[in-house]
Each structure stands twice: as C-alpha cells, then as structure tokens.
Design a binder for these strands. Structure first.
Lengths: 129, 129
DNA sequence: GTTTATGCAAATGGTTTGCACTCGA
DNA sequence: TCGAGTGCAAACCATTTGCATAAAC
C-alpha cells in the first residue's frame, strides 16, 4: 500500500505500481510511458514517481548497462535476483543464483559495512544463435 | 603498441594509454582530461579515443553505477577483475574473486553463447565507518 | 487548509555526431 | 597523398529542476 510509505495515492502512481507488479521482467521508463499513455501524464512526473518508489524500496532499479535504468516490482514474492540480457534481441531472463556468501564475508573482514552488490550477465540467447 | 591494432599514433593517444597504464584503479574521462590538460585536446576526441581503445580491448570500460564510465588499462599484467566502491569516499578497490565457473556453465546449458558478466560491490569502507 | 504531486518548460550532464581541417604513415 | 584523427559546434538522450497550479488528505 502506498499510504504506508507516507505517499499520496494518485491515479498515475497506482497505475505504475500495478503495471510493474503484473509485468515480469524489468521494464523501461519508456515502456511504462507507452503502456500508460492514456493517463496523459508528464514524463518528469514518471521519473519522479520512479525515483520516489525506488528510494522507498517499493520498486527496484535495474541497470543492465544499456545506458538507462529499468524498473521492476519489489514486493512480496519478488525477491532479490539477477538478470541476463541477450545482446541481440535484448530479451531479459532471471538468473537463479546469487554471489556466494563468502564474497560478502571477505569484504566484511576487510572492514566494509552495508555491502551491496550488482551482478548481471549478457550473451546471445538460444533463439538468436 | 598502438600500430598493432591498425591505429595511428598521436600524442594524445599515447598519453592516454600511458596515463592509464601507470594509474591503478579505473579513472574517469574527467580525470584523464584534467591530467592531460597540457595537451589541449577536445573532449570529443577523448571520448572517441576511449571508445576506440575499448572496442579494441586495449582498455576496459568500468561501470560502477555512478552514472558515467571509468576506464582502466587492459594490458599484460592487468587481467579480468572486479571492484568495490565506497559509497562515502568513492575509493575503489579491486576484489580478489570472480563468479564461480558453474554460473557460466549453467547459462551455457541454457543455450547462451558469448557470455560475459559484470559484478561490482559497494559499501562503506573501513576508514569511512 | 496544508502538504504533496503534477505539468510545463528549461536546464543538466555525459556522450555522440557532422563536417571541414590537419596530421601521421 | 590519402585516409585516419581532431577541433568545433551542435545535437542527443536520459534525467532533473524551478516554479506555479492542482489534487490528495
């Protein structure tokens, strides 16, 4: 719920969250705008909403090195995970593994706190090769 | 050597490669420009050179999620590695591990070819915490 | 009635491009 | 000489910001 986070509920915000929750895979600002164009909102507002949601961990920003961010739901059943993107058709799939615990432990021993990581893959998918 | 790759040798290009090879850690376009400002070159040329070198694997582009790329040498003794950046002081350190082989193997079995990966860490370093 | 969200337009910042000129081989 | 490299200025593109208005609570 949006109010839980101290945000006001607006048609656009609800629509963004609903779209993301029913979409599988991270989508771009552009794709969101296209999908919700009937709401006639300004692009700046979309950026602001996505930023707000990201900061509050309602959604997650995904950087696959494309030069722009993608966004995906961060709710209940959508837990931490990583992606692989096909360099040819740009299809994105979830990857079923995460970095080994020992990596993080190593960094903790080195004195790092609040460690987070990013990991993503790219390659040519089965269909494209 | 630059000629090996079919490139012409120019003062700027030589200076960029020399700077990168004697710098430890990935540096930004900006830092390179500042360091070589006595050569009085145009920023577009620097971008072009960095792109050219990256495409030819003479140097490597490093994306640490800062909103811009960094570049580092990719020669002989500088082999594939990953980084951790301190979210406070932005200091960057090399991380002495890479993803497990089985990750790549899994993706190969899924039909992916030419797989590459990116992995980086962030956290608060010892000194900052 | 306040506070927060939005629209609009302009600015930002990293990066790219077109084109004429220059220089390395 | 001739093609590759460069400078300059303008374009690009994702994103951000200032400010006045509008909507949520």
């Amino acid at each position: 719920m949006i109010h839980r986070k101290g945000l006001k509920s607006t048609p656009l915000r609800l629509a963004i969250l609903e779209l993301l929750s029913k979409t599988n895979g991270p989508i771009t600002n552009e794709e969101i705008a296209k999908n919700l164009k009937q709401l006639n909102f300004d692009r700046a507002t979309l950026f602001r909403s996505l930023k707000t949601f990201t900061d509050l961990d309602l959604i997650r920003a995904v950087d696959l090195g494309e030069g722009f961010l993608r966004y995906e739901s961060n709710c209940q059943n959508h837990h931490h995970h990583h992606h692989i993107i096909c360099t040819s058709c740009k299809e994105i799939a979830v990857v079923p593994f995460c970095i080994p615990e020992k990596f993080k432990n190593f960094l903790i021993k080195k004195g790092y706190k609040n460690i987070s990581h990013r990991m993503d893959f790219s390659g040519i998918c089965k269909r494209c090769s």
